[in-house]
């Protein structure tokens, strides 16, 4: 059983003028520990596909199985619970809670899961250490650079011990050097913690490092290429 299975997935937006088919009959299997990039031009359906996989949006056709569970059939509250326990999110604009410190941002997800204070504090510190921010745990987002904020976002995504991490254009707001360092870190987490990453991206640096590149065009899969992992040697 694959970690994620998409069968004939469709998403159509019924706009006032004409229906927009954002995702068209996408079928994919994503295995555990894959480092997958979903690429394509703007409007190709990358973000919509990511939203569907993340349970943020409901498909208009087909099915999405995550660890064998059809998430398209889950009710709204169950979906929130499912996301909390199975999916880590990294957003393009980091989207940290501005009034929380780095440590509190990471802890917060565990608070939602009901983890005890001592355990969540310990794990938050470990995660921040592992993303290289051990010395900035008490900094607020505004006191951190874009790259550092995105690292906190990655730590937050991992805090809930998710089955996989969905990263929507995670390097789009970062300079080349910072983006490279972030990707190195994610690749390391992928290897060391066997964490599955799924990116939507335009960034050639991400594409270059991905094990697998799924290209979308007009909402449909144009190509699905598995790359060797030699690219990681560039770390």
């Amino acid at each position: 059983m694959s970690l994620i299975e998409l069968h004939d997935l469709c998403k159509t937006y019924n706009t006032a003028a004409v229906p927009v088919r954002a995702v068209r009959n996408v079928s994919l299997q994503i295995e555990k520990q894959e480092f997958t990039a979903i690429v394509g031009p703007s409007g190709s359906g990358k973000t919509t596909l990511l939203n569907l996989i993340g349970g943020l949006d409901k498909p208009t056709g087909g099915s999405i199985f995550v660890e064998g569970k059809d998430i398209a059939t889950l009710k709204a509250n169950d979906l929130i619970d499912f996301r909390l326990h199975h999916i880590g999110f990294v957003f393009q604009a980091y989207n940290l809670i501005p009034v929380f410190t780095a440590k509190e941002n990471v802890e917060f997800i565990m608070l939602l899961q009901g983890v005890s204070k001592a355990k969540r504090e310990q794990r938050a510190l470990e995660l921040l250490e592992s993303v290289g921010l051990g010395d900035r745990v008490n900094s607020f987002p505004t006191q951190l650079s874009g790259g550092q904020q995105q690292r906190v976002a990655v730590a937050r995504a991992l805090a809930s011990r998710p089955s996989f991490v969905l990263a929507d254009e995670p390097t789009a707001n970062l300079d080349s050097h910072t983006a490279g360092a972030l990707l190195d870190m994610m690749a390391q987490l992928n290897r060391e913690f066997e964490m599955t990453f799924i990116f939507s991206t335009h960034d050639p640096r991400v594409i270059k490092r991905a094990h697998r590149v799924v290209t979308l065009e007009d909402g449909a899969v144009k190509s699905d290429i598995r790359q060797n992992e030699a690219a990681e040697g560039t770390e």
Partner: peptide, 12 residues
């Protein structure tokens, strides 16, 4: 921000 919090698993 509310959208993000709900996305990452905070119940309404």
């Amino acid at each position: 921000e509310f959208g993000v919090l709900i996305s990452v698993g905070m119940k309404r």
